[in-house]
């Protein structure tokens, strides 16, 4: 198959997958797109939203459409790392003897829903996050690799903060995207009610198998990015670093820490996915700008002044996007 055909196939698969998810999920196009982008870019997603907005349903639907192994972990304060990773248990052998055998935890799946991840203790969270980053788990002194694709969708509830353990900044950085699940519009809510109260259940068919997904993930990484577009992504990331030469004024005022280099990587990878889904063969400034909020918002650490003034990371990203010129050379020439 030629590259052009591969790209066309990519688009078709993506559209099919999106349509399939759309059978169940009403609205939330950006959430669906974000989730699929992270999936294709081999990243993980943190979904933040109040309960009942369909976060879990989205992940479940996605697992159905993808024809992949799916596990769900409900994070609670008493959840232990072993509950996630698995543990060595004593098993009777056929010859009557006893031996330790590793019992795989729910993390051994292609698609993992980490529901209310901020309710678990940091110890459990870090065990989960190691798996997310390394695609492997260490249990009983043995490293066990997770099978590709490995995609974690974590959810967290922004309200009801009592008894929660907010994710540390270093761990948040592991997430490819942070998607904010908002309330549906009136039309969307009407549609949701119609679908869920009239006994009709959508029949979600798997449209993408594991090999195809891996192929698509490889294709994403091949999309070329022009040097000035890369430079733009770099300048965006650098603009978030407070008290540096490259920082924009708002960063100096409201940020404690800016984005890590991982923020730049996610900008480009997400941009590549967006370029392919839009039928282009290269990444544009627009791609970078569109994905900037989702990729950077959880990497910016706000200071007290920002929190006191009610400034959000999205506000700061908006300002950075407006202040950093897309193309410095063109801006100078015009």
């Amino acid at each position: 198959m030629s590259t052009e055909e591969e790209i066309e196939s990519f688009r078709q698969s993506y559209t099919a997958l999106r349509d399939e998810v759309g059978k169940v999920i009403v609205g939330h196009e950006s959430i669906v797109d974000g989730t699929l982008t992270a999936l294709l870019a081999q990243g993980h997603v943190l979904l933040e939203g109040v309960p009942g907005l369909g976060k879990t349903l989205l992940v479940r639907t996605l697992s159905q459409a993808l024809d992949l192994n799916f596990n769900r972990i409900q994070f609670t304060p008493d959840l232990m790392p072993a509950d996630i990773l698995g543990t060595n248990i004593v098993m009777e052998t056929p010859d009557g003897g006893r031996s330790f055998q590793f019992q795989k935890g729910p993390v051994f799946a292609h698609l993992l829903l980490a529901d209310e991840i901020n309710r678990a203790t940091p110890k459990t969270q870090s065990a989960m996050l190691e798996a997310m980053q390394e695609h492997s788990v260490t249990a009983g002194g043995e490293i066990r690799h997770l099978e590709d694709p490995f995609f974690v969708l974590a959810t967290q509830n922004p309200i009801d903060q009592e008894g929660t353990y907010p994710l540390p900044e270093a761990q948040l950085d592991r997430f490819f995207l942070k998607l904010l699940v908002t309330y549906p519009s009136s039309e969307e809510l009407t549609e949701v009610l119609t679908r869920t109260t009239e006994g009709k259940t959508a029949d979600v068919q798997p449209v993408l198998h594991r090999e195809k997904l891996l192929e698509m993930q490889r294709l994403v990484r091949q999309v070329p990015v022009a040097s000035h577009v890369k430079d733009y992504a770099v300048r965006l990331v650098l603009a978030t670093h407070p008290n540096t030469e490259t920082a924009v004024p708002i960063s100096n005022q409201f940020l404690r820490f800016g984005s890590s280099p991982r923020g730049g990587q996610t900008l480009l990878l997400a941009g590549k996915v967006r370029a392919l889904t839009h039928g282009r063969f290269n990444v544009s400034f627009e791609d970078i700008q569109v994905v900037a909020h989702e990729t950077l918002r959880h990497r910016l650490i706000l200071n007290f002044e920002a929190e006191a003034d009610g400034i959000t990371a999205d506000h700061i990203i908006d300002q950075i996007l407006s202040e950093v010129p897309k193309d410095a050379a063109v801006a100078a020439a015009t």
């Binding site: 052009e4 070329p224 990015v225 022009a226 000035h228 370029a275 063969f281 544009s284």
Partner: peptide
């Protein structure tokens, strides 16, 4: 043009000019 011309110009003058992606671009 979503950086089509600039990317093409850059790819065409780089070492990867002959690869399939560059031609597509």
């Amino acid at each position: 043009l979503h950086e089509r011309l600039s990317t093409a110009l850059e790819r065409a003058s780089s070492t990867d000019a002959s690869d399939h992606w560059s031609q597509l671009v």
